[in-house]
Design a protein around this nucleic acid. Sequence first.
DNA 1: CCTTATAGTTCTAATATTTGAAACAGTAAG
DNA 2: CTTACTGTTTCAAATATTAGAACTATAAGG
Lengths: 298, 298
Amino acid sequence: MNQLEEMQTFVRVVDAGSITKVAEQMNTVKSAISRRLSELESRLGVSLLTRTTRTHTITDAGLTFYDHCVRIIEEVSQAESSISNKEKALEGRIRLAVPLSFGLAKLSPLLQQFNNLHPKIKFDVDFNDRHIELAEEGFDLAIRIAKLKDSSLIAKRLTTIQLILCASPAYLAKHGAPNTPQGLANGHVKLNYHSAPDSWKFTTKSGGTESISIPSVMNANNGDFLCQAAIAGKGVILMPDFICAEAIESEQLNIILPNQLTNSLLNVYAIYPQNKHQPQRVKSLIAFLVEQFKTSNK
Amino acid sequence: MNQLEEMQTFVRVVDAGSITKVAEQMNTVKSAISRRLSELESRLGVSLLTRTTRTHTITDAGLTFYDHCVRIIEEVSQAESSISNKEKALEGRIRLAVPLSFGLAKLSPLLQQFNNLHPKIKFDVDFNDRHIELAEEGFDLAIRIAKLKDSSLIAKRLTTIQLILCASPAYLAKHGAPNTPQGLANGHVKLNYHSAPDSWKFTTKSGGTESISIPSVMNANNGDFLCQAAIAGKGVILMPDFICAEAIESEQLNIILPNQLTNSLLNVYAIYPQNKHQPQRVKSLIAFLVEQFKTSNK
DNA sequence: CCTTATAGTTCTAATATTTGAAACAGTAAG
DNA sequence: CTTACTGTTTCAAATATTAGAACTATAAGG
């Protein structure tokens, strides 16, 4: 019982005035068309066509039904094509969740660029460091830093972030610039970034691992704030490169113990629900981000 | 591929928020529901629901599609129920073709009665003696007198008509009232009713058949007109009883050679296309006519 | 008027689709 | 950490649909 196909068949038979012709149009045999019509009439309990052996005339009820059918068929085709087109075209809205600092520093310009390429794609960006249930909150895509555990999501690595240990020249002048991890443990204080580990691990020149823990004089979940504090000489920070790069460049901050940190690399992932059918706009954005990060890292 | 069922399933899943519940509602198993959704999404090439293993959230596209679906389902149900009800209820229009004289004389009062019983049933009556292609011209029903050959139609005998040979007393006084068919052949003239045969057949007292042909001084395709002419003494008429009964009653016409005509009975049939599903109103009318003629003939 | 071609219906074997049941995978709640 | 529950997948069995031929009846053409 395929109501829609029955309706379609009925409409075409009325239009063409011939079961045989419709069978040809629809690439089937006349018996199939005949049976569909009978089926429909039986279900409705109404004759739609008054038949002689060779011709048929539409009944009153048939006429009424015909009008309904035409409209319904039109609406179904609209319903299907509207969303299919929308999803296949580079337009519509992308809901995106990004970490605050990385988002502002690194992603923001890329999104602007992407938007220039595809002006019909609108963004709805949530800058937030909280954990987000992608599927449940209706996000198309999220950017996450570091490890993820949600296994029903798909992750694509975009780039890496270098963690850099640094402090201001004034601070270092006052507390002494350490040459070894051990040196850091003597009298230094840190400004603690939100989800950072309590202790820092270093790879020594001999190849061993050393874990150093120093007191935190300031905690915050915002890297830029801590970076400002470090520039003001409040302590040592372990910061993603994109946050402190500028301060290092201008020598407001100096790198401490370069290349000695273990696991100083964080991965940045684009993660998205494992939808079988992803809107084209989302696919495009992911591809764009992958491409951009690839070239900018060269 | 049953699009409508897919849409229905999708809507119910969105409403209920659970595939399992919908499976129960629809008296099937969850695997069927799950497969229908996947099928629909594949065909559209779009994710309608973003799934985790235990829950799902509707996507943007899903939301759009949902609205369409709800409207379409509503319209389909309207389309089907509207005509089903209309055809099953005692309302609507009956297109009826009836012979002119018989229609006016015998049918007209019955139709009025029927209309009083079922005031919602409208009539569209074509009083016409021409041959009508029932099916092709969209009639629900026709009343026909005598034989019919259209085998794709169904006929139901309603009543019989008695043909009566008569003339006015004045005419008979002038030309002589015949006692035998042979007597009629001597100097009598007839007023010829449209499709009547050229010669009249009589059953003689000895049991034989006699065929008499007399000149026609007037031809017409309207019985009432010929009846008036006969009353005016213009000639002999062979008329259906319902046309001349009143004139005979009032002795404006006298019966000639009573009970001697062969085949003086005509059958009246209700004929209708052999639709498998006839509107209830038409069924009712046929039943009513059969019933009324049965009682009136007692 | 008869013959032939054609339209639609019905029947049946073959084919395709859909279902139901069970196994499976993953998550939430206790 | 276990249990209960949700949704997905798989596959044999049930169901529905189709193609093709035979059949009925009409229209058209000689």
